[in-house]
Design a binder for these strands. Structure first.
Lengths: 141, 141
DNA sequence: CTACGGCTTTGAGCGCGCTCGAAGTCAAGG
DNA sequence: CCTTGACTTCGAGCGCGCTCAAAGCCGTAG
């Protein structure tokens, strides 16, 4: 598989694939007769895993540590496992933080919804006995 | 409250606070006689909210839209609510993605744990009738 | 009076993760 | 033969979100 096709299949650009190889995230690809990269389909699995590490916020620097261990073969299993376990805790903490933020967001949105509700009610009142000017509540943030 | 104290209480650096004011994330602070910023404690609530938006991945560009609406007063409530609702969906989607990644991470870690288990068993076997060299399993990513 | 710490502005610089452009090689198709 | 288009390397550039340095002002303590 050439780089263009891998780009399409992996969702990364050819530029990015070369960049990843340059920095060591991807192993140096085999070349065909004229020096063009010729990939084995199995690389897709590794790319997919890298994508997940990235999605979960792992910096490239740390992915490189993992990639380097991987290159060194099966003997590095324990180290890789430790790295992933540490990362997993980071991600779990981040998810928890996001969920807490979601609650705040919910209540904030709820506040705006209430305000709109009051405005509608006020409009209705005006339609009945006209002119009542209720001041909307606080603007806390 | 001067900028140094606000920095300590908000967890942002004075540099960052000035930067936020410069770009419009924070309203222009009142100044004392000699031109130094003099903050009202209520700004902390807004900063805290900004922090949450940032934690949840909202780009500054979008925080600026929200901040601008806020400056324009209560009339912009519906718009702000819409903005936050859209952001909430983004965050929810991101959380779901992270959780999916966590499952993958778990199974990956499980794989390493199994490998270690097999190695231990193998060691034990060697101690009994010596020399058996079992080839470790695949290195899939 | 002086020294000190904390503040002011402006603009430059940085770390990250790409992203792109230039200049050139190569293989297949019309 | 000549064009087309996908590939090669290398280094520069970009968008984001800060972060910091320079040069200078102010107010209080010693």
């Amino acid at each position: 598989m050439k780089i263009g096709q891998l780009a399409r299949r992996s969702g990364l650009s050819a530029h990015t694939l070369r960049y990843y190889e340059r920095i060591g995230l991807l192993p140096r690809a085999d070349r065909d007769g004229s020096g063009q990269r010729d990939y084995d389909a199995s690389i897709l699995i590794w790319i997919e895993f890298l994508r997940r590490l990235k999605t979960t916020g792992m910096p490239i620097r740390e992915m490189l540590r993992y990639a380097a261990l991987r290159e060194r073969g099966p003997a590095t299993g324990a180290e890789r496992r430790a790295l992933l376990e540490a990362h997993r805790e980071t991600v779990r903490a981040h998810v928890a933080e996001l969920q807490a933020c979601l609650l705040v967001l919910d209540s904030k949105i709820g506040g705006y919804a209430d305000a709109e509700q009051r405005i509608e009610e006020n409009d209705a009142t005006e339609r009945h006995h006209d002119g009542k000017q209720a001041g909307p509540r606080a603007e806390g943030a």
